[in-house]
Design a protein around this nucleic acid. Structure first.
Lengths: 144, 144
DNA sequence: TCTACTCTCTCTAGTCACTAGAGCTTCAAG
DNA sequence: CTTGAAGCTCTAGTGACTAGAGAGAGTAGA
């Protein structure tokens, strides 16, 4: 039996975050001691490991909920799981593309000025004030 | 003179977001009509364009505040602006690296299963349940 | 001038995935 | 039996918005 702190040390997930996952329904409410403290078994540890890994891969809590639902009904097709993974992959790829275009512009901006002038003619500030020098289109909000 | 809606259409920033920027101190409170509606001049439009561009580039509200402070004191060195841009660039580059390692793993996961099995032996779910098959280390939370 | 309609106002609350803190109780080692 | 770490619940805060309610203001056409 593991305490919440044991689980935290073994998975690297912080204690309040574990409680939060329970509240969100990702983690089943475990047994309690007489003094009302949580006690987890192997399956709690495994599930938290699953959640941790999926979060590291950028899956949302909602998506993880869906994946857990699939685990709990192993008689169903796993097509939805694969589909979630593909969606996630597409998302990651589009973030990479957007970030790479930001990288290009930021490099141009950061290297344009050596930081030795006055800010009245600073290249960084000028570049931010106008979009016209941008070589690529990086618009669309930086929800990266 | 522009209404808040005019500003919104010209910059692509939503109306409530403009009010939010004002509340956060990024945008000076503009004149008002007798009926208490905001009316902006050219400088308000320009500043909002600056904010928009910087946000697109991933600068935080706090960083933008600092940049605006520099614009308003053009007699100071622009070194801090360059330094902010470099920090931002470093951040973008590290996000790209992390996302690329996620991409590798997600590709492996998404292609491992054709989605035609039962979820009891789904490769996606197995992969998420364990970290042992990962070729790279993508730990550290997906604050991407 | 009246009407109709869109725009704008303030205010509160919700989003996501946590994180921090207060104030209390329980557990385990010595 | 004492002490100190670890646990409990609850509330509120983070960042950068977004949504909605309910009211007032501005404007184009009749």
């Amino acid at each position: 039996m593991y305490s919440i702190g044991d689980l935290s040390r073994r998975t690297g997930v912080k204690v309040p975050t574990i409680r939060y996952y329970e509240q969100m329904g990702l983690l089943q409410a475990p047994e309690r001691t007489q003094g009302n403290q949580r006690r987890y078994g192997k399956s709690g540890l495994a599930r938290l490991g699953f959640i941790r890994h999926a979060r590291d891969l950028g899956f949302s809590i909602e998506a993880i909920s869906a994946l857990i639902g699939l685990q709990d009904h192993p008689d169903h097709s796993c097509e939805p799981a694969t589909s979630l993974a593909r969606t996630q992959l597409e998302d990651v790829r589009s973030r990479i593309r957007r970030l790479q275009s930001l990288e290009v512009e930021l490099t141009r901006i950061a290297e344009g000025c050596q930081g030795d002038g006055r800010s009245s003619d600073c290249y960084v500030l000028d570049s931010l004030a106008s979009h016209e020098f941008c070589t690529s289109d990086h618009k669309g909000g930086a929800g990266l």
